[in-house]
Amino acid sequence: TEKEKEVKRLAKERGLSPDQVRELAQRAGFSPDQAKQIADEFA
């Protein structure tokens, strides 16, 4: 999704850790499970 792409782009730009990616995703409105899946891509 657009929102997911945006979260991943920000995460890459900022060099976020997987935990930070998960927090960012949840703040963007993703469920905890979705946020974990997104964060796992950065693990």
Rank of each mutant, 00 (worst) to 15 (best):
L10A: 06
L10E: 08
K8D: 02
D40Y: 13
A25N: 00
G15K: 10
G29P: 00
F30N: 00
A28K: 07
E13M: 10
I38D: 02
T1E: 14
K36L: 12
K36Q: 15
R22Y: 15
K5R: 14
A11P: 00
K5I: 12
L24Y: 05
V7C: 06
A39K: 02
G15M: 08
Q20E: 14
K12L: 10
L16D: 04
R14F: 15
D19C: 05
K12Y: 12
A39E: 03
V21G: 01
A43T: 08
S31C: 03
L10S: 04
E2L: 12
K3M: 14
A39I: 03
K8H: 06
K5F: 10
E4K: 14
P32C: 12
K3G: 09
G29D: 01
G15I: 03
K36Y: 07
Q37W: 07
K8Y: 08
A25D: 00
Q34Y: 11
I38P: 02
R27G: 09
P32L: 13
K12W: 13
A43Q: 10
Q20S: 05
G15Y: 05
K5V: 10
E13D: 08
S17W: 06
R27S: 14
A43P: 04
E4Q: 10
K12N: 08
R14K: 14
P32I: 11
G15W: 05
D19G: 07
E41C: 02
R22E: 13
E2M: 13
Q37Y: 06
A35G: 02
Q37I: 12
K8R: 11
L16T: 01
S31G: 10
F30G: 00
Q37H: 12
Q20I: 04
L24P: 00
P32M: 08
A28P: 00
F30M: 04
S17K: 10
A35D: 00
D19Q: 13
F42Q: 02
A35S: 06
R22C: 04
D19S: 11
A35M: 02
K5W: 12
E13S: 06
P18V: 11
P32D: 10
R9E: 07
Q26A: 10
L24C: 06
Q34N: 04
K12G: 06
L24F: 07
D33Q: 14
G15C: 08
K5Q: 14
A28D: 03
S31H: 06
I38W: 02
E41Q: 11
K5S: 11
Q34P: 01
Q34S: 05
D33V: 09
F30L: 08
L24S: 03
Q37F: 07
A11N: 02
F30Y: 05
Q26K: 07
A28Q: 08
L10N: 04
A43F: 14
K8I: 13
D19K: 12
I38E: 02
R22P: 02
L10D: 05
R22A: 13
F30W: 03
A28R: 09
E2T: 10
E2I: 10
I38A: 01
V21E: 02
A28I: 13
A11V: 01
S31N: 09
F42T: 05
K8C: 03
R9F: 04
L10Y: 11
G29W: 01
A25F: 04
A35I: 04
V7I: 15
P32T: 07
Q37V: 12
A11W: 04
P32V: 12
E6H: 08
D19W: 11
Q34T: 06
P32A: 13
D40T: 09
D40E: 14
E2C: 12
R14S: 09
I38N: 02
A39G: 04
K8E: 03
A35H: 00
V7L: 15
K12A: 11
K12M: 09
A28S: 11
D33P: 05
D19I: 09
F42S: 04
R9V: 04
S17M: 06
E41L: 06
A25L: 09
L10W: 10
T1H: 13
A35F: 03
K5E: 13
Q20P: 00
E6W: 15
Q26C: 11
Q20K: 06
V21D: 02
L16R: 02
L10C: 08
P32Q: 10
E2D: 13
E13F: 05
P18K: 11
D40K: 11
E6A: 12
F30H: 01
V21K: 00
E41F: 06
Q20C: 04
A43G: 11
G29N: 02
L24Q: 03
G15H: 11
K36G: 08
Q34W: 05
A11D: 01
D19E: 13
G29S: 02
D19T: 09
E6P: 00
K36A: 13
L24H: 03
A11R: 00
R27E: 15
G15V: 04
E23T: 08
A35K: 00
T1Q: 14
S17I: 04
A28E: 11
Q34G: 03
A43N: 08
D40Q: 11
D40I: 12
E2F: 11
L16W: 06
A35Y: 01
Q20D: 08
E23M: 11
E2Y: 10
V21I: 10
R14C: 14
G29V: 00
D33K: 11
A35L: 02
Q26I: 15
D19M: 10
D33M: 11
A39P: 02
I38Q: 02
T1V: 13
Q34L: 09
L24D: 01
L16H: 04
L10M: 09
S17H: 09
Q37C: 07
F42L: 11
S31E: 05
L10I: 15
D33Y: 08
I38K: 01
L24G: 00
E4H: 09
P18E: 07
S17G: 07
L16P: 01
E23D: 13
R14N: 13
Q37N: 10
D33T: 13
A35W: 03
E4A: 15
K12Q: 10
R27A: 15
D40W: 14
A35N: 01
T1N: 13
F30S: 01
E2G: 09
Q37G: 06
E6V: 09
E23K: 07
G29F: 01
E6F: 10
K3N: 07
P18W: 15
F30R: 00
V7Q: 01
D19F: 08
L16Q: 02
E23G: 05
E6I: 09
E13K: 08
A28L: 15
K3E: 08
S31K: 05
P18M: 11
A43E: 14
P18L: 08
T1P: 13
P18S: 09
G29L: 01
R22K: 11
D40A: 13
G29A: 01
E4R: 15
E13Q: 08
V7R: 02
P32N: 07
A28W: 15
A35Q: 04
S17Q: 08
Q26D: 04
D40F: 12
D19H: 10
I38M: 06
K3Y: 06
E6M: 11
R9Y: 04
R27F: 09
L10T: 06
F30A: 04
A39N: 02
I38Y: 03
Q20Y: 03
K36F: 07
A11L: 02
K5T: 12
K36E: 11
Q20G: 07
L24I: 05
R14A: 14
K8P: 00
Q20A: 08
A43I: 11
Q34V: 11
G29C: 01
K5Y: 11
E23V: 11
E41I: 06
K8W: 08
P18I: 12
L16G: 03
K12H: 14
V7K: 01
Q20R: 05
Q26N: 05
K12R: 14
G29E: 01
A28N: 09
E23S: 06
E4P: 03
K8Q: 04
Q20V: 03
K12D: 04
R14D: 05
A39H: 01
R22T: 07
I38T: 02
D33R: 09
R14H: 15
Q37D: 05
F30P: 00
G15E: 07
E23L: 12
L16V: 01
L10H: 06
A39C: 05
A43R: 12
A43Y: 09
R14W: 15
E41N: 07
K5A: 15
F30I: 04
I38G: 02
A11M: 01
L24E: 05
E4M: 15
K5M: 13
Q37K: 15
R9M: 08
D33I: 10
V7S: 01
Q34E: 14
E4G: 08
A28G: 04
F30K: 00
D40C: 11
A25C: 04
P32H: 08
A11T: 01
A43H: 07
K3L: 15
E6D: 07
D40N: 10
S17D: 10
E2K: 09
F42G: 02
Q34H: 11
P18T: 09
K3F: 07
A11I: 03
D40M: 13
L10G: 03
A28F: 15
A28H: 15
Q26T: 11
F30V: 02
K5D: 14
V21S: 01
S31V: 03
A28M: 15
V21R: 00
K12T: 08
D19R: 10
A11E: 02
D19L: 09
D33E: 14
L24R: 02
A25W: 01
R14V: 07
